[in-house]
């Protein structure tokens, strides 16, 4: 798909967290969103971050080939949604891309929904690709479980969250990232009051669910402890011809719905 510079595409980026070391990095899904935006709009893509411009991990997004990034300077306890709403009131966009959920904090994935509701735009969750944009409508591919894809059409402007099934982000270059510029705007967000009451703690492992044997008598308990695992009730075809065996297998595949009618 050719690069369309007439499109106004904004990507919301956040500071991620390495899953093992916990170090700050570019968030994986946000980086995929930037990649998707770069293939659509080239270097006219605009990046928006709400938070602290002093965070070094933000330069990893600039290192993907962008010159500037807008940072709405906010305190950590600020409500990012209200800040972004004010930003998009003055900076209209055709497509807003974001990751499905953040990698630190609450990670509720609710911010795109809040924006979509208040701006009155449609929201398409978990997209993998934007195939075409014609006559004010975009055709997007949504990622489904088990590697499946669904085609949707949606009118511009819209908000989309980018799934991990989207093409991987390009490498980030350190030098261009350091030379990139931040366009810092002082945000006017309200504080997130509800969050102040929460208690955060390091995650403790969730208890594994045990197999509870609800046997009434000793004989049943003994049977449950010694019984062989299930799955021996299978049908075995020996004497039939190859054609009949193949037909039985094929019927099972059709009945299970893995061979599409």
């Amino acid at each position: 798909m050719p690069v369309e510079t007439s499109l106004n595409i904004a990507v919301l980026v956040s500071v991620g967290q390495h899953p093992v070391s916990g170090r700050a990095r570019r968030a994986d899904q946000d980086a995929r969103a930037v990649e998707l935006g770069l293939t659509l709009a080239g270097r006219s893509l605009s990046l928006v971050h709400v938070g602290d411009a002093g965070e070094p991990a933000l330069r990893q997004y600039l290192g993907m080939g962008l010159r500037t990034m807008t940072v709405l300077q906010e305190a950590p306890e600020a409500d990012a949604a209200s800040s972004l709403l004010q930003y998009f009131a003055t900076h209209p966009a055709d497509i807003v891309l974001a990751g499905v959920q953040a990698e630190r904090g609450e990670a509720s994935g609710l911010l795109p929904y809040l924006l979509a509701e208040r701006l009155g735009w449609p929201l398409v969750p978990r997209i993998a690709q934007i195939r075409a944009i014609e006559n004010g409508r975009a055709e997007v591919l949504q990622a489904l479980p088990r590697g499946q894809r669904r085609a949707l059409t949606v009118p511009l402007p819209f908000i989309a969250t980018v799934d991990s099934a989207a093409p991987g982000a390009r490498q980030t270059a350190f030098g261009p990232g350091q030379r990139g510029l931040f366009d810092i705007q002082r945000g006017l967000a309200q504080a997130d009051v509800a969050r102040a009451e929460w208690v955060e703690a390091q995650a403790r492992p969730r208890p594994k669910r045990l197999n509870v044997v609800k046997a009434k008598s000793a004989a049943e308990r003994f049977k449950a402890a010694t019984a062989k695992p299930q799955g021996q009730g299978g049908q075995v075809m020996k004497q039939e011809s190859s054609r009949e065996k193949a037909q039985a297998i094929f019927d099972l595949l059709v009945a299970e719905g893995v061979i599409r009618q």
């Binding site: 799955g231 065996k245 193949a246 099972l252």
Partner: peptide
């Protein structure tokens, strides 16, 4: 075959050809 819900006993290439 013991684990399977459906077991077809026979030469695999013949059954695959029919399939």
């Amino acid at each position: 075959v013991r684990r399977a819900d459906l077991g077809a006993i026979g030469d695999s290439s013949e059954i695959l050809a029919e399939l």
